[in-house]
């Protein structure tokens, strides 16, 4: 393989996932906890603090992407059609009562995947191509 070709391939690799990531965000859970699919409402209830329990009875532990990651903004836009400021304002009101709290915010995608693997109740959102066998896609967020 030539350098040119390599460069071209690298470019393609760099550019392609980006294009695909914009298209596909998926909600994933621990592959072993037996859940096959979740409804959008269920995902909203879990992430927005209404019910923190999975259908199988396991307490749900939602995980957010780190701040600054485009996936986070895209996710809330797709999920409840709100921007992050609005999401933050929402949580600001609930923080003082202490009855519920915002999802745990991971420091990286790796940590998200790690938590997914480790915690049976973990639920997070990632790009489709970041999914690995440890996780199971329960909802595909698309336009």
């Amino acid at each position: 393989m030539s350098i040119t070709t390599t460069l071209l391939l690298t470019l393609c690799l760099i550019l392609l996932p980006r294009a695909r990531a914009e298209a596909d965000l998926v909600v994933v859970v621990n592959a072993r906890n037996g859940i096959e699919r979740l409804t959008l409402d269920s995902v909203i209830n879990i992430f927005m603090g209404r019910y923190r329990q999975l259908p199988s009875g396991i307490p749900a532990q939602p995980v957010d992407q780190p701040d600054g990651r485009p996936e986070k903004a895209r996710f809330y836009r797709l999920l409840v059609n709100k921007d992050l400021a609005e999401i933050n304002a929402y949580w600001a009101r609930l923080i003082f009562s202490g009855r519920t709290s915002p999802p745990y915010q991971a420091k990286s995608t790796a940590e998200i995947l790690d938590r997914l693997a480790r915690q049976p109740g973990a639920i997070a959102y990632i790009e489709r191509n970041q999914a690995d066998p440890r996780v199971r896609i329960v909802l595909e967020l698309e336009h």
């Binding site: 927005m48 603090g49 209404r50 009101r93 609930l94 003082f96 009562s97 202490g98 009855r99 519920t100």
Partner: peptide, 17 residues
């Protein structure tokens, strides 16, 4: 909007506030 949130998450404290 606050009441909506309180009801959504069934937050009695927020509702009281």
């Amino acid at each position: 909007s606050t009441v909506r949130i309180a009801c959504f998450v069934q937050d009695e404290k927020l509702a009281d506030e």
